[in-house]
Each structure stands twice: as C-alpha cells, then as structure tokens.
C-alpha cells in the first residue's frame, strides 16, 4: 500500500543577493561590520497538511505563485521543508521537468538509458524501454540520428515515451503534456492513462482545469502557500471558479527582509 503524508509543512526560499554568496563578505558580516544579511526569505508554503492513500489522484490548482510547484517539489523530495514532516510510502517517481539528461549530440536511441537512470529506473525497465520507446515514438530511422536534428514534435514524442516508460507507486508530475500534433496528443492520452492506471497515487499540478477534471478525483486549491480547500474534484473546482472571480485581498506572499 502506498501513502503520502504531509504534516504541517512550511517552506521558505532564501533568496541570496550577490554578496550573500561570497564567503569573504559573509565572514565580514560575522565579524560585525553591520551590513545587511544578503538574504531575503520568501515564504512559499505555510502549514500545509495532506494525506493521500491508494487510488487518490490529487490535482493542485491555484494562481501563479500559490505554492503548487513548491509543494510538488517538496513531495518529489527536491526541497526539504524547514518545518513539518513529509512521509512517502511506495516507489516515488517525480516528473518535474522534461528533457533532463537528454544530450542533443546523441541519437534518440542512445538517449533512452541515461534519462531513465536519472529518474531511477531499474535494469528491466531500461531494457524494456529500449525496445518500446523507438516503436511507440514512431520516429522510424530518426531514432538513430542525433536528437538535435529532431523537430519539436519529434523531440516531444521521444521525451514523452521515455518519461512514461517508468512506473512507480507514487507519481508526482508537473503539467508537461504539450507540443506535438493532434494525432500525438490522442496517442499520448492513451499512454498516460495506462500509466496512471498502474500508479497508486498521483499528484499533478496544472493550470488546465480540463486536465484536472479528466485525471483527478481530488483537488487541492492553494493560495499564498496555504491550502484553501481539499476535496472531491467537482466541489473544489466549483468553489475555485467562484473564488477566482473575486479579486484577491491583501499582499501577495509574506516577505521578510533581514
């Protein structure tokens, strides 16, 4: 059984200015030269709690800067919240960005192994992908040409095929289903559904309510790094659509300097 638990997680990004990255300047500050800290803190998540179990497909919605991506990266294990706890049970696959590990000088075929290894694939998955990706992507002989010679659509097909060749129990993904011709979108949808069907827990961040509606059975609405509402898709989306009509009150995020 897979599970995702987030307990009162808070996270803030330190944003360093140029002097904040210098050891010399930092040492001088320690010696009390009285200059500013060189670090601005941006609160990205405040007191977020979530609990997901098998069969949950959670969609994260909210405006830009609401904390969706940060929460996604926290769940992916890329960011560690300064306060609170994260627990993930089950094999976690995080598809945050496409094209990591792809080298344009190498052929499509030679580009299958490394991205998959970086995502954490095992030997069986890699050898399966080496057979499956060239066929599914429909690249034909292009699979043996350097990726830099590919069109955007071909590149998208290759990346999509690679990313979806790995299966986990907990899937964390940013919205990245894009580009490619109409034929590809349909084909991609089928493959994505097949992937989602074999995954126990899905967390997806998207701006497209369309995608959220078609994939998720739960929605988490975020504003200013806080969860406004979590619940069944229809309920939360209805509230969200009503909510976004109202102009937002107050300052955007808490920024503390010093």
């Amino acid at each position: 059984m897979a599970a995702v638990t987030v307990e009162n997680a808070s996270f803030w990004y330190p944003v360093y200015d140029v002097t904040g990255r210098s050891l010399k300047v930092s040492m001088m500050r320690l010696l009390g030269s009285g200059a500013g800290e060189g670090v601005v803190e941006v609160q990205a998540l405040s007191d977020v709690s979530l609990e997901l179990k098998d069969g949950d497909r959670l969609g994260l919605i909210g405006r830009n800067g609401a904390g969706k991506s940060t929460l996604l990266k926290v769940l992916a294990g890329l960011l560690h919240p300064q306060r609170g706890k994260i627990k993930i049970r089950g094999r976690r696959i995080a598809l945050i960005s496409r094209g990591i590990g792809i080298h344009p000088e190498l052929s499509g075929y030679r580009n299958i192994e490394l991205p998959m290894r970086l995502l954490g694939a095992n030997e069986a998955e890699i050898s399966r992908a080496k057979e499956e990706v060239p066929v599914w992507s429909g690249l034909g002989d292009f699979i043996h040409l350097p990726v830099r010679t590919y069109s955007d659509g071909m590149r998208a097909r290759l990346l999509f095929a690679i990313c979806t060749a790995i299966r986990g129990e907990v899937l964390i993904m940013d919205e990245w289903l894009s580009a490619g011709d109409a034929d590809f979108v349909h084909k991609a949808q089928l493959r994505l559904n097949e992937m989602l069907d074999t995954t126990k827990i899905v967390v997806l961040s998207s701006h497209s309510l369309e995608i959220i509606r078609s994939i998720c059975n739960l929605v988490c609405w975020m504003e200013h790094g806080r969860i406004v509402m979590v619940g069944p898709t229809q309920e939360v989306l209805a509230a969200y659509l009503q909510g976004v009509q109202r102009p937002l009150q107050g300052a955007d995020r808490r920024i503390s300097i010093g």
Binding site: A76, L78, A94, I96, I100, G101, L118, L119
Partner: peptide, 9 residues
C-alpha cells in the same frame, strides 16, 4: 544545477 533542480540526485 539544472539536474538538481528537477531530480533527486
């Protein structure tokens, strides 16, 4: 840095 922003390495 590009990899570390998107992958757990």
């Amino acid at each position: 840095s590009a990899m570390l922003q998107n992958l757990r390495l």
